[in-house]
Structures are given as C-alpha cells and as structure tokens.
Simulated scan of single mutants.
Amino acid sequence: MHTNLFISNFNIPSHMRMSLLQKTTWFLLPCLAFVPLYFWLISRSGNIYLRKEQLLEKHISQVNCLVMGSSHVLHGVNPEYLPSGAFNMGNLSQDLGTDIRIVKRYLNDMKNLHTVAFDIDYLTTFYSMTDRENKWRDYYYNYFMNLDYTTSYNQLRASLHLLEPGVVQYTLQGILLKMMHQRTEFIMPMNTWGYSQRTFSKNINERTGKKRAAAHSKLYSKAFYDQNLQIFRETLAMLHNRHIRVILFSTPVTDFYASNLDPRLVNLQEEFIHEVQQQYALEYGNFTHDKRFNLQDFSDNDHLNNQGAVKFSKILCNELFNHPKSGPPAIAMKR
C-alpha cells in the first residue's frame, strides 16, 4: 500500500508528459540540425590541411624531397632556399606517427622522391597528438588527406572529438575569422611549397621560455616513446629498401626554452637519434643551440620567424641537403 502511494506521487500527468516531450524535441532539433551544418562548414573551411594536400598534389610529380615535422618545420623551413623540388609537409602539432602516415600515403605517387627529412626535436620522440588535446586533428588528416586513422581511432571516435565544446569554439572561431579575412589556422598564408611564415612575435623571455618548456615536458609518455621508436625504425627500413635518403635535424630554439628542458628527456631524445642514426648511418644536424641565431630570428621561444626561417633553410641546404652522404653522418651544433 505504501509502495503504491509512493509510486503514484511520482506519476506524471499526461499533459505534462507531452509538454516535456515537446520541449525536449524543440531543444534537440536545433542541435541535430547543427551537427551536419558544422561538418559542412568544416569541409568548406579551406583550412591548412586541405591547402597542404592541394599543394602537394599540384607538385607531386616534381617533389623529390619531403621535409616532415611539426609547426617548427611549417614555420621554420622554406623550401625556396632548399634544392629544387623540396616540399614542406610540416603542420601544427603534427607528431612523428602522422609524419610517417603522410610519407606512406604519398610515397608511391612521388616518382622522383629521393630524400625525406625528419625534424626530431625535444617533443618529437615522446609525443603523440592522438591521445592529447590535439586528438581531434586526426579527423582532418583523414578527411582532407585521406590518411588512415590511427589504430586506436575510427571515423566516429575522431568525429566525436570535433564536437567537444572547446573544439567547436575553436573551429567556428577559425571559420568566422576566415570569413573576415583574418589570419588563423584556417587561412594561414603559405607559399606554393608548403612554407607558412610567422609574422607576429610573442613575448620571448625566461618566464615564457620556462612555461613553454614545462608544457612540453608534461606531455612525456614512455609508451609513446617506445611506439615512436618502433614505427620510425620500420619506416627507415622501408625507405632504406627503396634507396631513399633520410636526413634528421633539430630546429633552433631560444636559450630561454632550451635551458629549461628536462635533462632526462633531452637524453632520451639523444638516445633516440643515436640509435637510429647508427643503424642506418643517417646524417643528422643538431641546430638546437646554434649560436648563429639570435632573438631577432624567433617569433616565440621555440619558433623561427621569416627572417630566421630563411637563415635556417640556407644552413640546412648547405650543411645537410647538399652534404654528401658518404661524408660524416652527423653535424653537431653545441652551445
């Protein structure tokens, strides 16, 4: 008896149930309509992933050298100052695993490819964007570059990450600013060989350098380090069998950034490079502490500006790309 009374007190009258259903429907309909509109806007956004793919396809018969890496490469290596046929395939937050997927994706289409250059920086060896705040980018690589998803991903999972509030805000803001002809990731100026110059500067000092270095150090993962080393070895073996030259380099950074890096992780980076370098007698240029660069060459603590990119590209060309493979396997730029 008490049980029936308890239940009856929570019975919702039919007119209230209808009202609740109507309100829920009116709330859900705009949300459901927004999702396809949102993905349609993404497909039309003309973002950096689409632009990179279009430029590479345009030059694919001419490309004989791919330069791979993160934003350090995107903003730091201008192929116009490298041997003819070089293409900058670096991108924002791009990890080593994605570098490798891109190389494999286009390898058979680049009939004249004879060199692949990988940027191996502090973060490269132990970072993977697919399990961090940049994991939503996996959708873009699949949609615009037709890259296979990583083993832990699929289209649904990658798409759901694009619906996270922070990513929605970031994406819509980028599309809106593009419509207003503002410089963003979605309308980043880029030359025909994939280089995008940084024209702005952020505060470059000890405090910001320390903060930036700490943020990168927090991304350390032993699992990703082991994974990156394994897939990189496999990729080097594949490229070696195809008689494709592999060059490794590390980009210049400010002392404010470099002096605050975790020594333990710096040692891991060196071990990573040493291991693959010795196995395949790879050329390596370590320009991290290169004193030819000063603060006027940087846009922030770890990215070159256009002036620095021109300087660095010329150095890369003279000291690595035009360096005979039979010569010394490593070029070290110490403090």
Rank of each mutant, 00 (worst) to 15 (best):
A214P: 05
P79D: 04
N47G: 12
Y122P: 00
K210E: 07
M333Q: 11
L123V: 12
R212G: 06
G174A: 07
C65T: 12
N108Y: 08
K111I: 13
V246G: 01
E185L: 12
Q278K: 08
S61D: 15
L282R: 03
C317V: 08
Y81K: 07
M188V: 12
F287K: 03
R157D: 12
K314I: 07
Y153E: 01
N88D: 02
W26N: 11
H75D: 06
V73Q: 08
S259M: 08
G46K: 14
Q278V: 02
Y139N: 07
I247C: 06
L37Q: 09
F126L: 01
Q173L: 00
L156R: 14
F10H: 15
W26D: 05
I273F: 04
L177V: 11
N112A: 15
N228V: 05
R137G: 03
I7D: 14
F298W: 00
P30M: 05
S43A: 13
V73A: 03
G76H: 08
L248N: 02
A33K: 08
N306M: 05
L156F: 15
H59N: 15
T199I: 09
A86N: 02
R335A: 11
H240A: 09
W26Q: 10
N11L: 13
H161L: 09
L28Q: 12
E275S: 00
P252D: 08
N205K: 10
A33D: 08
Q22K: 14
Y170M: 08
T254M: 05
Q269K: 08
N228D: 01
L82R: 07
R198G: 03
D226E: 15
D119N: 11
G209L: 03
K218F: 07
T98N: 06
S43P: 11
I204W: 00
R212M: 14
L162S: 03
Q197P: 13
N78E: 04
A258G: 05
L74T: 06
N318Y: 14
K325L: 15
I204C: 04
L21Q: 12
R335V: 10
L56T: 06
L56D: 06
N88G: 02
T184M: 10
P329F: 01
R335N: 10
R264P: 01
K311D: 10
N203I: 10
H289R: 10
F298M: 06
R51I: 12
L248K: 06
R245F: 11
